[in-house]
Design a protein around this nucleic acid. Structure first.
Length: 281
DNA sequence: GCGTAGTTGCAAAAGAAGTT
DNA sequence: AACTTCTTTTGCAACTACGC
């Protein structure tokens, strides 16, 4: 409980930037929240906030969000939580959890749409003759991480019936940084040291759920292909090297959209790194 | 299925700042 | 001075979740 108290005290001490024209109204809102909306159980709708607080300026619902609430969320000493009941001041773990869930679900829902649109765009070749502004294209860098499971050989089918290749696609460098930060946070969350190597087999169910929830906020794309060796008839599959190459060709072509610059990261396994990477381009 | 909650992208308009 | 380009302001519309 000590931590919660600390946050509250920080909010009490919070003062706006003196040359912020909305500073006074921000302070009014923070004071109102401290008095009436401490914690998610005391959430109050923006409509009621507008009725009860004597702001200096006139606000609509959205204007209050744009000018006051959103900027306040960039502050470090307090956070205005949200739920379907209204806004409130975050004080303890429950409050934070409520708000994190709210955002996470929202983002997940939007990402579902994003994925579907990308799929449809690809299927219908919408981007085939689409030229992105070259000035901008240079700035978008993609990072694709590739990894496989199993071996690309048809030799030991009983013990090793599948060959799986997977790709993780990240847009831009700041996303990479974001992911690194997130992983550090996750290790902290499940009580592991910074240099701990995350292995899914070493996690219990709760840790698994926590990690998936945290990662779901990051905007990555993921694709994987599973080859069932039993069902493979083509001649080329009997050669591990061409099988391997075919698998990654297939995956990368599927995962690719032809925008911007690409960096490929292969898993170190088998020293294939440079050799195969060279063969793809 | 409808209404209400918060949130945010979008577009239009207005203003600011460069450019020729 | 005229034109263009960028930024800011502002309300609308759309999204999901949830309760009825």
């Amino acid at each position: 409980m000590r931590k919660g108290k600390k946050l509250r005290e920080k909010a009490e001490r919070w003062v706006p930037n003196p040359n912020d024209p909305s500073g006074d109204d921000k302070k009014l809102l923070v004071e109102f929240l401290l008095k009436h909306c401490d914690g998610y159980k005391n959430a109050i709708s923006i409509g009621r906030v507008l009725q009860e607080v004597r702001f200096k300026d006139e606000y609509t619902r959205e204007l209050l969000q744009h000018r006051i609430i959103v900027p306040l969320r960039e502050e470090n000493d307090l956070f205005i939580g949200t739920s379907n009941k209204g806004i409130f001041l975050i004080n303890d773990a429950d409050d934070a959890y409520k708000t994190i869930s709210f955002y996470t679900n929202r983002i997940r829902a939007e990402k579902k749409h994003l994925r579907n649109l990308k799929k449809i765009a690809k299927k219908n070749e919408l981007f085939k003759s689409f030229n992105i502004d070259p000035k901008r294209a240079n700035k978008i860098k993609k990072y694709i991480y590739l990894d496989e499971s199993g071996v690309p050989s048809l030799k030991n089918m009983k013990t090793d019936p599948y060959f799986i290749v997977g790709a993780l696609v990240l847009d831009g460098t700041d996303l990479r940084r974001q992911l690194a930060r997130k992983l550090a946070f996750i290790k902290d969350l499940i009580g592991k040291p910074k240099d701990y190597e995350l292995k899914s087999t070493r996690l219990n169910e709760k840790q698994y759920a926590d990690i998936l929830r945290e990662l779901s906020i990051i905007d990555y794309e993921f694709a994987a292909i599973c080859f069932i060796k039993d069902k493979l008839t083509g001649h080329g599959f009997s050669y591990p090297k061409s099988f391997y190459k075919y698998a990654y060709d297939f995956l990368i072509n599927d995962v690719f959209d032809d925008i911007g610059e690409v960096n490929l990261y292969f898993d170190e396994y088998g020293g294939v790194n440079t050799k195969f990477q060279a063969e793809f381009f």
